[in-house]
Amino acid sequence: MTSPKLKIVSWFTQIAAAAIMGQTLYFKFTAHPDSVQLFTELGMEPHGRLIIAALELIACILLLIPSSIVYGALLGSCLMAGAIIGHITELGWEGPRLELGILAIVVLSCCITTLLVRHRELPLLKAIQTDKPTQRGPRNH
């Protein structure tokens, strides 16, 4: 079982990830000029912006519902990986972009930490016994 201490760590990273992702949603959904500018550079304006925003909203919600945390973390890390790819290939890291890029990396690390802590809850991994075999001592009388 996942130890209670690790679970607390996981809740911190979940909430941090959801909070950082969540506060950008407002700019995306309201078509803030900066956000529109970003997505125009990526060639995804306006549909891509709305799709990404909707997926981020879903990830935030999943991250906060106990039975779906790992799915939220999975979705969140995919989105952030995409964001980082965007920074590498199109957006660059100058000026305010640096801050955005670093936030994406922070959210990605939060999501991955959550996944590592809760790897036993992942649906496919569940089929596999992930614990290392422990040693059984000789008979004691």
Partner: peptide
Amino acid sequence: FIAGWQISFYFHFITVPMLG
């Protein structure tokens, strides 16, 4: 990844899961 870079960023919707 190359397709997403050169053709359309939408290809990265596949790049990312493949990366995982």
